[in-house]
Design a protein around this nucleic acid. Structure first.
Length: 302
DNA sequence: ACTATTTCCTGGATGC
DNA sequence: TGCATCCAGGAAATAG
């Protein structure tokens, strides 16, 4: 379940492999769920584009694209046609400005629960649930595999993709505190709300709340400033530590090199229901909040 | 305008 | 052993 640290790890690994490479052609599967933008639009934007940079925004991986002059394999007439269809499709959905084949664009990948991006040789066996294959100029392929299909692929004109939430590793205390003001929702739900902070998911919300001594069910607005200050530090610490360890490998998560992360060994509450609290030996409890398992120590967290 | 709940998905674990 | 059921959860959709 890739959250900020896992996505950061994956984005860094991917950046090392594909920055400077170009996309020659694109194959997209028949399943519609993984495609947030229309298939022809994704293909039109990706084909013949240079990958100039790979980075993370919240839980999204963003590939910055630059159109390279006269890619021999992309015929201008077909591109014009695709752009025309794109324009009308966008207008119909009221999705904002049309996505013309601009000089700069973005390919945005959300891994959902089980999404994987793999860079491999073309002869490598195609995994079950492969939804996209990008043929690269270097001869390799970038593939998107996602069994559960919660992941999403989309394209945007450069700068058009904006998420409302703030990066938790960049936010300052005086911006952080008011995020929770007047919110009746449980603090755990607020942390999972990507419109507030982007990138925090179930694991790191639980781990941060434990470190800050706050029960996940506590109403966000009722958390004292003192506790919010602790939470502010806890979130940053947890995320930074997790990034250092390459993320948490639970379920089948591996990074771009197929390496597992090790932060799961540092989990103090997540997935430890019934086990003893490492601080006070009390049994860790699990409750469901907003449909998510939430783990906490009833003694350490108030 | 908020908040809470439901829905989408498959594979692995569990139960009988 | 085999089959059915449950569970994981991000975010969009829907309901309240």
């Amino acid at each position: 379940m890739p959250e900020l640290p896992e996505v950061e790890t994956i984005a860094r690994g991917l950046a090392k492999r594909v920055t400077g490479d170009a996309i020659e052609s694109v194959w997209l599967g028949q399943k519609k769920e993984p495609l947030k933008s229309p298939a022809h639009e994704i293909a039109a934007v990706l084909e013949g584009a240079l990958i100039s940079r790979v980075h993370r925004m919240g839980k999204h991986i963003v590939l910055e694209l630059e159109r390279i002059a006269g890619p021999p394999n992309v015929k201008p007439p077909s591109r014009r046609k695709a752009a025309t269809v794109t324009t009308s499709a966008l207008a119909r959905r009221g999705a904002g400005p049309a996505l013309a084949p601009a000089d700069k664009a973005q390919f945005i990948v959300h891994l959902g629960m089980t999404g994987r991006l793999q860079v491999c040789e073309p002869e490598a066996e195609i995994a079950k649930h492969t939804h996209a294959i990008l043929k690269l100029q270097s001869g390799r392929e970038l593939r998107f595999v996602d069994p559960r299909r919660f992941g999403r692929l989309s394209v945007a004109a450069s700068g058009q993709f904006a998420t409302v939430g703030i990066e938790p590793l960049e936010i300052d205390l005086e911006t952080f505190i008011p995020l929770f003001r007047g919110r009746k929702t449980p603090i755990k739900s607020a942390l999972l709300n990507q419109k507030l902070l982007r990138g925090v998911g179930n694991i790191y919300a639980d781990e941060s709340l434990f470190r800050a001594g706050i029960r996940p069910r506590r109403q966000a607005a009722s958390v004292t400033r003192e506790r919010l200050e602790k939470l502010f530090v806890a979130i940053k610490d947890v995320l930074k530590e997790a990034i250092k360890l390459g993320g948490s490998s639970i379920s089948d998560y591996v990074d771009a090199d197929g390496e597992e992360g090790f932060f799961q060994l540092q989990h103090r509450v997540y997935g430890r229901e019934g086990e003893r609290c490492l601080a006070c030996k009390t049994q860790i409890k699990r409750v469901v909040i907003a449909g998510r398992s939430s783990h906490y120590c009833p003694k350490c967290q108030k």
